[in-house]
Deep mutational scan, measured.
Amino acid sequence: MPVRRGHVAPQNTFLDTIIRKFEGQSRKFIIANARVENCAVIYCNDGFCELCGYSRAEVMQRPCTCDFLHGPRTQRRAAAQIAQALLGAEERKVEIAFYRKDGSCFLCLVDVVPVKNEDGAVIMFILNFEVVMEKDMVGSPAHDTNHRGPPTSWLAPGRAKTFRLKLPALLALTARESSVRSGGAGGAGAPGAVVVDVDLTPAAPSSESLALDEVTAMDNHVAGLGPAEERRALVGPGSPPRSAPGQLPSPRAHSLNPDASGSSCSLARTRSRESCASVRRASSADDIEAMRAGVLPPPPRHASTGAMHPLRSGLLNSTSDSDLVRYRTISKIPQITLNFVDLKGDPFLASPTSDREIIAPKIKERTHNVTEKVTQVLSLGADVLPEYKLQAPRIHRWTILHYSPFKAVWDWLILLLVIYTAVFTPYSAAFLLKETEEGPPATECGYACQPLAVVDLIVDIMFIVDILINFRTTYVNANEEVVSHPGRIAVHYFKGWFLIDMVAAIPFDLLI
């Protein structure tokens, strides 16, 4: 008679799926529990143990900040960024110097990925580790590398530091407007667009060049630039800015003055950032001319202004700041037409079709709590990747769950009947059967004279019903998954307890 339990259901295979997918890609990662103190490590794979030199037993239950890997060259700011990422709910990448158990130093890129439950609360953290440099290539500990984003994938490793954006290309926007319009339909740009040429040739750093990471940081200074100062900065030398009595002219307006920039070969870094931020506020060169004239017309309804409409929906549905990093990277690809469009465009503009998908598509409701890094690593669709929660398995109709209350009560009843059979069957065979043979035949009273025979008949009927119930009862397979398919249940029961239950259900007393 089957006594099969499996009270692990309803099970959740999400954690096993993450481990299996990460292991298949030869990654070095740990999984931490966000619900406990210090976000203790609950799993670390073999790749991480080989990377740091510690065994799994030495890593388990330690804080996922990996303070046991810190050393003299470990930056405090990087460690603080990892700790801050564990307090938030967004994906974050941090470069930090770690030390192995043998004392060797290596520069590592740590990717902190939160995993949320159905309520939107962070319950786990996945920390992925990628070695960037070994100890002989690690720089000085005073050099802070965590304020910069990861290198873009479309640049060669040897040319990542030679990417320079020439400031004269930004200063000569109005001069290039006529050349853009003359391109017409034969050019790649839309009317009114501004073409910015980027020099990728390796050259020595000069005062006129600005690194790509500095251009990325310009967006942080746009908020500090007032509207009046932006307007004066875009007017140009024809209309000098008016300053109040006793007030000095704005240095932001002076930063885009061609006369002032041409007199000296070098520009201050602050002026460069502010000038680029001011130019980015204009949607095209037409807006710059309109600002000089004193009238700013409404933005025209053409394809170039609607190019950012799908980007707005993608940004609203993005799951991490990696989408913004990807957008900034692609927006700086050289030799393309940049349409400086305000994100607050007309909502009635139709979304044009684009061959290049900048932001990841909208994630469906079932995966809105899973970050983009987890979705990318697992390579699963929205119909396959579940949320991290207890999910009731989908069972067929008329199927009994093996952990249901009805099955528990039924098993206790069958257990009592088995005990009765084990006690009274030998007793009936030894004593009652002998008395029946010696006594007179009682054929007239039937079952009324033999109450134990009636009980034995009921017990046999219950055993037959138990066999039928076992054909529709779920079970737990070797992978700790609840199986509810009727065919698989029948095959599993035939290979197991079916023969024993059938022999126990045969009414031998009635056959004798």
Rank of each mutant, 00 (worst) to 15 (best):
E357I: 07
L256N: 07
K332F: 01
E50H: 06
V8S: 10
R356E: 15
S207R: 15
H70L: 03
S266H: 10
L15F: 06
V222P: 10
A268I: 14
E372L: 04
S182F: 05
A244K: 14
Y327L: 12
R56A: 07
N220T: 06
E50G: 09
A79M: 06
G187A: 15
G314M: 09
E95H: 06
N317L: 08
H368A: 14
V377T: 03
R5T: 09
G139T: 15
G294K: 12
R164P: 14
S153V: 04
C66F: 07
D16Y: 10
A172G: 15
A80M: 14
E50Q: 15
E118V: 09
S104Q: 09
V115Y: 13
A277T: 14
V131N: 06
D102N: 09
R181S: 08
N257Y: 11
A277M: 12
A193K: 05
M133V: 13
E95T: 08
S275H: 09
P63H: 03
S278F: 08
L51Y: 01
S104C: 12
Q84E: 15
M137H: 15
G183L: 09
S104L: 08
A190G: 09
S278W: 08
A85P: 01
C105H: 12
F125P: 01
G187T: 11
F348M: 11
P361C: 07
R73C: 08
N128R: 06
N38Q: 10
N317Y: 12
E214T: 15
G186I: 06
S379K: 05
T65V: 13
G120D: 14
A285C: 15
S104F: 06
F106H: 01
E118D: 11
Q81M: 12
P251E: 10
L256R: 12
G53Y: 01
E90Y: 13
V222R: 05
G71R: 01
F48S: 01
V341M: 07
K373M: 12
Q81R: 10
N33V: 05
T162H: 15
E134H: 14
S272G: 05
A80H: 08
L385C: 04
V41T: 08
A121D: 11
D136I: 11
P241F: 15
C276R: 07
E95Q: 13
T152D: 05
S331H: 10
A260P: 05
R366N: 07
T201P: 15
S239R: 07
R328M: 05
